[in-house]
């Protein structure tokens, strides 16, 4: 595998893991713009557990410990944050990410503003299997009773409450598990590039990850996979095509075209690329869900 392809594959894998972390709360309609915060927590915690100046644990131990650490923090803040909704939730998670990055920059024992070197290296043979495991886990998670609850909350929270779904528990679990996945992605990022800086995990990263999920679609577990792949592949493909065709302006301005894509996608397919209806149509017999009555009514087919 050439170095270039491998580098792109790593970026794709990390994007997919991050995207599933945001997807789980988004599947219940909670928009989390704080991805960067959880990624920072995971990356720094794992680096510190691994570092010779820290706990000196091997990588296979430091990553799960970082996930648990992030999970505890996410669990603790999920109660106040999930009290907010809609625009307020977007703002609260966003503020949380900024607070985390502000703290990380100022902690001297993890390098402060200068960044923090990470000891153990995770190469592509670690990251790809982990990514596949995350994807499979997310599909499983969405097929459980809890996943069904999340979907029902996404569609209509008050009706879900009436039918006896424990809305708060479901939301807290989705938020916490999502945060742990992002932490996993952050740790792998640190262990792959062997160097982390709080400034890398900025608002723009959170925005992009939220875009992966919303563009892919929040209705099915395929959404984040499609969204992240689209984001990782399309700009690169555009660059390749533009460069081979000798269009320098297109190679430089490919993100403009990409922005236009996003706007148009929202015009023509506002629920994201992958919806339940499309999944049914594509899947044929293989993935067909048992059709609930409510779907027939909503779909109007």
């Amino acid at each position: 595998m050439s170095g270039y392809i491998e580098a792109q594959l790593i970026i794709l894998c990390l994007s997919i893991i991050y995207a599933y972390g945001i997807f789980l709360p988004a599947a219940s309609g909670q928009l989390n713009l704080g991805a960067a915060g959880f990624i920072t927590l995971g990356a720094y915690a794992s680096a510190w557990f691994n570092a010779s100046t820290g706990a000196e644990l091997p990588m296979w131990l430091s990553i799960p410990l970082a996930m648990i650490f992030t999970g505890i923090i996410a669990f603790a803040i999920s109660f106040p944050i999930l009290r907010t909704r809609g625009v307020y939730m977007v703002l609260a998670t966003f503020a949380f990410a900024e607070v985390v990055s502000g703290v990380a920059i100022n902690l001297e024992f993890v390098g402060g503003a200068a960044g923090f070197p990470v000891d153990d290296h995770a190469d592509v043979t670690v990251i790809v299997p982990v990514t596949i495991a995350v994807i499979l886990f997310s599909f499983y998670f969405m097929s459980t009773r809890l996943g069904l609850s999340l979907r029902s909350i996404h569609d209509d929270e008050s009706v879900a409450t009436l039918f006896g779904v424990n809305v708060r528990t479901s939301k807290v679990v989705a938020f916490t598990v999502g945060a742990m996945l992002m932490s996993l992605g952050g740790s792998l990022y640190g262990h792959h590039y062997n160097y982390i800086e709080a400034q890398t995990f900025n608002v723009l990263l959170s925005i992009y990850i939220l875009l992966y999920v919303l563009m892919g679609g929040t209705q099915t577990a395929w959404g984040p996979l499609i969204g992240a792949t689209f984001f990782a592949v399309v700009p690169e493909a555009l660059r390749e095509i533009a460069e081979s065709a000798g269009l320098k302006w297109l190679a430089e301005g490919r993100f403009i075209l990409f922005g236009v894509f996003i706007v148009l996608l929202m015009v023509f397919r506002s629920e994201g690329v992958m919806t339940r209806t499309l999944q049914d149509r594509l899947g044929g017999g293989l993935f067909r869900r048992k059709k609930p009555i409510a779907d027939d009514m909503a779909g109007g087919s």
Binding site: L214, F255, F258, G259, V260, I262, V263
Partner: peptide, 9 residues
Amino acid sequence: VSSLGFLII
């Protein structure tokens, strides 16, 4: 999402 698209543009 659309407005983020415009921000990128």
